[in-house]
């Protein structure tokens, strides 16, 4: 019978022995050496029955299939677009997944997506050698125009979205902004005016810095105050 050598939800650093014994299973962020389970990154330990997992606190985005990401076009090739999504290797958006239009041989591809254009895309495939394929076919996938793009820590994206999207819908409702959160830690915000965009950015930065605390939705709700729509209605009726 093995034993756990570290408290659940505490911070582990690389090389730290988390558990002993073959009855525990290593998941993300840890590895097995002989009968020991050892951390390979800085992260928060998560023990779920026999599964020992590490939620990383830093590091680059590691691409996963069917993630929605935001990236910019860095190169145009014969067969499609090369897109930087903030992970180690560039992603490729092939022509057939980019548009349903018929594109003639030798046509200028920058008509569709030019250099430095920002696109919201979905990862259709990740190969073992880290080749990433993107697709633009799906709901909400498009080229972005206007607004602001900010970076957050990729491991904290789930907190920005919240349970069943509770946090993101709160942000959208209270600020009146359009917000798209990419799994790669890029967030696009577009509002009617600068003030509302600024408010949304401040709130997202706050979530990014406070990602480990509990009751975050209440704090953000307090920070944002009442919604603009509610205030307007109050003014009209009052």
């Amino acid at each position: 019978m093995g034993k756990i050598l570290i408290e659940d939800k505490s911070i582990a650093v690389p090389g730290e022995i988390l558990a002993e014994g073959m009855d525990f299973l290593p998941a993300g962020g840890v590895f097995r050496e002989n009968d020991k389970i050892i951390a390979s990154q800085i992260g928060i330990v998560n023990i779920d029955n026999r599964l020992v997992k590490l939620i990383p606190l830093n590091g680059r985005y590691s691409p996963k299939k069917s993630d929605m990401v935001i990236g910019d076009v860095v190169n145009i090739t014969f067969s499609g677009w090369v897109i930087d999504i903030g992970c180690t290797n560039f992603a490729v958006l092939p022509i057939r997944d980019a548009t349903s239009d018929f594109i003639d041989k030798g046509e200028d591809l920058s008509r569709y997506y030019g250099f430095k254009d920002i696109v919201v895309a979905k990862i259709s495939n990740v190969s073992k050698t880290n080749l990433i394929d993107l697709t633009m076919k799906g709901p909400g996938l498009m080229k972005i125009k206007g607004g602001m793009l900010i970076d957050v820590t990729p491991s904290r994206v789930p907190r920005i979205i919240g349970k069943q999207g509770s946090m993101i819908s709160l942000l959208k409702e209270r600020t009146g902004c359009k917000i798209i959160v990419g799994q790669n830690g890029k967030v696009w915000i577009k509002g009617e005016n600068f003030e509302s965009e600024k408010k949304a950015i401040d709130a997202i930065r706050m979530i990014n810095n406070l990602a480990h605390t509990t009751g975050l939705t209440d704090k953000i709700s307090e920070f944002l105050g009442g919604s603009e729509n509610v205030q307007k209605k109050e003014q009209e009726t009052g």
Partner: peptide, 11 residues
């Protein structure tokens, strides 16, 4: 290297 989040066997 650990601060950069690179997987390591040990420090």
């Amino acid at each position: 290297l650990a601060d950069a989040g690179i997987p390591m066997r040990d420090l």
